[in-house]
């Protein structure tokens, strides 16, 4: 929200005021704080009014259940049309169109601040786009992407005071109420896939960052979702764990799943599609029409 140069000015003013404070009472610090607070408030109010804040009340109580059959998955695709997303007063993504198909991995690449996280959060339904539409194909037209997706963000969603197993059992119950496989089997498989079986009864708060991350990712396999939205899933994972994740993603793709991931690593996938975001490099396409198949990140 607050521009870096203004912050610097503010800090400089504070430093000055700190020196002034040693001599006199230091009203400069007070004015600097007041000025910053007022301008921040003004900006916040301005961005609130200029961005239409829409709350999705679209009948949440009677959404159609996700069918876990196989008749629809081979036709599943996600289509974003002319998507424009604003954060505050800044347009992060402008007029972006792309289609992701079942069995295909779409990797979002781009420099920091290019809008990878924003795009994933928009697809997951947290951010309302300023313009454009996100749609699933006919089978899903009245269904949110949010309902059909696993969202893995920067945070792991792990409770420190529960054991690793209790954490996963909760997510299996919460996310996978319609699964036919017993919960114990799903949790056991997920733990053993990520090599966490030994730590199942260990409080999750005592796990290392990488182990917590793996536990968070294990959520992907305790409930079925056709679409996986992964935001930097490899953060704090070692090479072996990254391979385990890649294996899980390949299995999901083989089952006609759809994966959209923001990543700096190629994830060991055979033929991912790259979607380049942000300012275009010399070889890339112009922003707004940035789907370049098979190119290197």
């Amino acid at each position: 929200m607050f521009r870096a140069d203004r912050n610097e000015k503010f800090l400089a003013a504070l430093r000055l005021a700190g020196r002034a404070q040693q001599d006199a009472g230091g009203p400069d610090a007070f004015f600097a704080v007041a000025k910053r607070e007022a301008s921040q408030l003004y900006r916040r109010l301005k961005s609130r009014t200029s961005t239409a804040v829409l709350v999705n009340f679209a009948n949440p109580l009677c959404r159609r259940p996700i069918r876990a059959g196989s008749s629809w998955v081979d036709r599943l695709f996600l289509h974003a049309d002319n998507l424009t997303v604003e954060r505050g007063t800044r347009t992060v993504i402008s007029a972006l169109s792309f289609t992701a198909k079942a069995g295909e991995a779409l990797l979002l690449v781009g420099p920091n601040g290019a809008g990878k996280t924003t795009l994933i959060r928009t697809l997951a339904g947290f951010i309302t786009p300023a313009a454009g539409t996100i749609s699933l194909n006919a089978e899903f037209t009245d269904q949110d992407v949010a309902e059909a997706c696993h969202y893995v963000g920067h945070l792991t969603g792990i409770k420190a005071n529960l054991t690793a197993e209790q954490n996963l059992v909760f997510w299996a119950e919460y996310l996978g109420a319609r699964e036919s496989t017993p919960i114990e089997d799903r949790v056991h498989d997920a733990l053993s896939h990520f090599g966490l079986s030994q730590l199942a009864d260990y409080p999750a708060g005592l796990l290392s960052a990488g182990q917590k991350r793996r536990l968070g990712l294990a959520r992907l396999s305790v409930a079925h979702r056709p679409i996986w939205l992964l935001d930097e899933p490899t953060v704090s994972l070692d090479a072996a764990s990254t391979d385990l994740l890649a294996k899980l993603i390949r299995k999901h793709l083989a089952n006609n799943g759809l994966v959209i991931a923001a990543t700096h690593l190629p994830l060991g996938l055979e033929d991912p599609t790259y979607l380049r975001l942000g300012p275009a490099p010399s070889t890339g396409a112009a922003p707004g029409d940035t789907l370049s198949g098979g190119g290197a990140p």
Binding site: A146, G153, W171, L175
Partner: peptide, 20 residues
């Protein structure tokens, strides 16, 4: 707060159970 800090809230928002 706790669920917001550890990211659980965001996962809950994408679950079949309505957020309400």
């Amino acid at each position: 707060e706790a669920d917001h800090e550890d990211g659980s809230l965001e996962v809950m928002a994408t679950a079949p159970l309505p957020l309400e």
